[in-house]
Design a protein around this nucleic acid. Structure first.
Lengths: 97, 97
DNA sequence: ACAAAGGTTATCAAATATGATAACATATCC
DNA sequence: GGATATGTTATCATATTTGATAACCTTTGT
């Protein structure tokens, strides 16, 4: 007995639509993910832990984990990002293109 | 009768201290002011009004005025900045240096 | 095996940013 | 002068982010 569903055009279109929405959503969030990845990369490059960053900023490592995580889409404000950058001994660079 | 106060070292130090704090504060807010100035410049360059940006985003011109203003230090979150950038037909570029 | 280090997730309180609205000010146009 | 366009400021409600804490998980070191 075959239990495998046969692909149909409707299925294909639905999947394509979902992919399009997913892509659109992902594109919309690119700046967020970009800065998160940069923060994590810089922290690791400098051999710092989340806890050390947290201490420099005056917060908790769990809050740093939340900030760094790609598993949520909280939108950090500039103060938060600026503080993290400063804790890295760096500056936040923000512009338009 | 002389009514002019004579400068003293204490006065000088106090003024220098204030300037130092002001400068420090200003430096800390540089990224904020930088992106504000860029948003305004881009909007004007594209010949758009605050109201037009507001309509594209789905907010009010007064909120755009507040966002653009150098007279306050509200720290916009990334979503807000991303929306403005998109209304300009541009992308927000954020990184570390 | 156990402890410590490093990180993740959830929850709720507190703080802050944005939404919504109105009044006001200035500049421009007819 | 009056109407319109553009921008500013204030106020309060609402939404969102951050603060604070705890429990949990994984990795590392001894």
């Amino acid at each position: 007995m075959q239990t495998t569903k046969r692909p149909t055009f409707a299925n294909f279109k639905k999947k394509a639509l979902q992919n399009e929405e997913v892509r659109k959503e992902y594109n919309a969030l690119k700046p967020l993910f970009a800065i998160k990845k940069q923060l994590v990369a810089a922290r690791i490059a400098k051999g710092l832990t989340q806890d050390e960053i947290a201490k420099k900023i005056g917060t908790s490592k769990s809050n740093i984990s939340r900030l760094e995580s790609l598993n949520n889409t909280y939108m950090p404000n500039l103060a938060t990002l600026m503080k993290y950058a400063e804790a890295l001994g760096m500056r936040l660079d923000i512009g338009l293109r």
